[in-house]
Write a protein that binds this DNA or RNA. Structure first.
Ligand SMILES: NC(=O)c1ccc[n+]([C@@H]2O[C@H](COP(=O)([O-])OP(=O)(O)OC[C@H]3O[C@@H](n4cnc5c(N)ncnc54)[C@H](O)[C@@H]3O)[C@@H](O)[C@H]2O)c1
Ligand SMILES: NC(=O)c1ccc[n+]([C@@H]2O[C@H](COP(=O)([O-])OP(=O)(O)OC[C@H]3O[C@@H](n4cnc5c(N)ncnc54)[C@H](O)[C@@H]3O)[C@@H](O)[C@H]2O)c1
Lengths: 214, 214
DNA sequence: TATACTATGTGCTTGTGATAACAAGAGCAA
DNA sequence: TTGCTCTTGTTATCACAAGCACATAGTATA
């Protein structure tokens, strides 16, 4: 039987769901659950069980037929594949309202850890929020290189974003999550993605209004 | 020639892009640009021009062959179709760090307007943030009904979310955007969507790590 | 009025993801 | 061992979205 280890390409949708599966598995683990079925994961994540099995099968065979999946071993297998081992260190630029909300949020979430934050406001520099220290933007390159950080979250006003992006790329950042909705100029090997609450709300407005019109 | 007004179903992907198209059009309008081509929109939104034309064609024929689209009339046509006319009033629950960042963000964005915010903290109630007044959670039903608000954003701790969701649904809310990552229990006619910065960051970690392994 | 030109709108192909249905494998009991 | 049950892993099918490529319909110019 051909094993699917690292099939040429894994669908982005699958990768997105993997995030939810690991959360779900962690939550089962914390409840002391040892063994689960694809159906259990599916219910908790709001997808179909066949989707769960298909997704996992992109990486290999981890279950036991007739039984299910061992929670702990499935978790550590996924951690091994993604090389993250549950510890994902990221940087954050802009310790304003939004930035500090994200830092606090990350302390409640056991996966992503913001290990360094940056701001240009002297009043904020050298403060600590939980375990996260706030540095000057001048130190971005030093700190990013020192801690070998590969992913950064940007939560500053749009006008300054590209300038900061250039610094981040120079420092070796390989993926950027921007909360400002302006196009970013980056080399091909740097992943960029955007998150915006209000765009999502607008989308919901469109969806509602068209629903009535059909 | 059959006009496509309200073709049976419009793809979700199209609807998501419509949000970006309208922003793009507004930005062109503000720059004083009168006439544009699908190529212009495409470049600004990072998609292909054929996608733009296909998307618009789901709603009808708005362009002039050999010329392009009239910015202003295309905008008002879309506003007419979506019945939003550029004014999208939403409510927000939880005026903490995240909530107040979103309210501020909405003042910088000319589309979605947070016309009412709610909190349970007495110190925050009756304050005003920009033009947004903060009410007590006890007033949710009254205010939502009074202003006929159909969409709500939830930015409170996960533990209290379902309780608030029930109140919102009872008050007539038809779409909920939650920033807490717990499954919501709602009737079938209520749309639910989630936004989470850290899930997106985890996804980027997975993407990066698998990129190296292929 | 004719001709060249330009960008739209759309039919069609291609690729990708979702879903269902089923075969295969593991455990268990007699 | 044989047969039964249970859940995985996989295959085959369906649905949908992306993108090409061109006919179409409008403008501009002479
Ligand atoms: N995508 C979303 O869903 C979303 C939601 C809310 C806000 N936003 C956006 O996020 C940004 C921040 O919002 P906020 O409410 O936290 O604003 P804020 O004013 O509270 O905070 C901004 C912070 O960034 C710092 N800063 C500014 N320029 C900087 C620079 N060049 N280098 C380093 N630090 C810099 C400031 O000192 C401040 O601490 C805004 O532009 C807003 O539009 C996006
Ligand atoms: N999805 C994301 O990207 C994201 C990012 C950051 C934070 N969060 C989540 O958003 C939530 C809020 O974060 P924050 O940093 O603003 O926290 P916060 O403590 O600053 O604010 C929470 C606010 O909600 C109010 N509140 C609490 N319970 C309430 C209730 N039952 N009814 C009405 N109001 C209530 C509080 O009074 C407070 O004003 C947290 O649970 C956090 O995990 C999500």
């Amino acid at each position: 039987m051909m094993k699917n280890y690292f099939k040429s390409v894994i669908p982005e949708t699958t990768l997105r769901r993997m995030v939810y599966y690991t959360r779900c598995l962690n939550s089962f683990k914390n409840e002391g659950v040892k063994l689960i079925q694809s159906e259990d994961i599916a219910k908790k994540c709001g997808v179909k069980s066949s989707v769960v099995r298909k997704d996992l099968s992109y990486f290999g065979e981890f279950g036991v037929r007739g039984k299910g999946y061992d929670v702990e071993s499935l978790l550590s297998t996924i951690n091994g594949i993604t090389n993250t081992f549950g510890k994902m260190n990221a940087a954050l630029i802009g310790v304003g309202k939004l930035g500090s909300a994200i830092i606090k949020h990350s302390t409640e979430n056991f996966n992503v850890k913001i290990i360094a934050a940056f701001d240009k406001d002297k009043k904020k520099i050298n403060k600590e929020i939980g375990e996260t220290k706030v540095y000057s933007v001048k130190d971005i390159e030093n700190i990013i290189k020192k801690y070998k950080i590969k992913i950064a979250i940007i939560a500053i006003p749009p006008s300054d974003v590209q300038e900061i992006v250039d610094i981040l790329v120079k420092a070796g950042i390989k993926a950027i999550l921007s909360l400002a909705l302006i196009p970013l100029n980056v080399p091909d090997d740097v992943e960029v993605s955007f998150v915006d609450v209000l765009s999502e709300v607008e989308f919901l407005f469109y969806k509602l209004s068209l629903r009535r019109n059909i």
